[in-house]
Design a protein around this nucleic acid. Structure first.
Length: 170
DNA sequence: ACGATGATGAAC
DNA sequence: TTCATCATCGTA
């Protein structure tokens, strides 16, 4: 039943490559024995010290610190006072990077995903494994077409604002 | 087009 | 301790 759980080594690689390969994978949430699953169809990459759109651009602050840590860990934060955003940390320790999951299982928008999958900040800094009851599986889906585009809502991000770091399955 | 709504980080 | 800022959403 359970296909390949994506291991830490999957995420401990160049962020843009991981972001692209994340499309077609399945986000799985387990809530008291019940499973919620959805195919990931849209992601955005936030990487490096110079990416002003990334929380890590301001350095190793308490909130962004998790982005500097181990790959394969969830980074979940509250935005606009009412919504949570789900990210997965990538790359080696010391290099800040994460991927925002924008759409999964037909649910579009980071805030809505967290509501649908019952995700909140209690999962922040947890590894994406069955233990944390939130993980990602490879079910063998190979996306036909991957669309690349500019990230949403990052006009303030200076030289990184026009990077094509948004990937989606149309 | 905009208001709801609160944590975050930086300045003072 | 105060202040501007914000990887959004729902209603209009």
């Amino acid at each position: 039943m359970r296909q390949n759980l994506l291991p830490k080594s999957f995420f401990n690689r160049p962020t843009l490559q991981v972001a692209e390969e994340l499309l077609g994978k399945f986000l799985v949430r387990e809530i008291n024995g019940h499973k919620i699953e959805g195919m990931i169809t849209e992601v955005e990459a936030y990487l490096g010290f110079d990416d002003k759109a990334s929380h890590a651009a301001r350095g190793r602050t308490p909130r962004a610190e998790v982005m500097f840590g181990s790959a394969g860990v969830w980074y979940i934060y509250l935005i606009y006072g009412m919504y949570c955003c789900l990210n997965i940390v990538t790359e080696r320790e010391g290099f800040p990077a994460a991927i925002l999951i924008r759409s999964a299982g037909g649910v579009k928008g980071p805030g809505k995903i967290c509501k649908y999958f019952h995700i909140d900040r209690a999962l922040n800094k947890k590894f994406a494994t069955t233990d944390s009851k939130l993980w990602i599986e490879d079910c063998g889906v190979q996306p036909q077409h991957i669309k690349k585009g500019k990230r949403i809502g990052v006009d303030y991000a200076g030289k990184c604002k026009d990077k094509l770091w948004r990937f989606e399955i149309p």
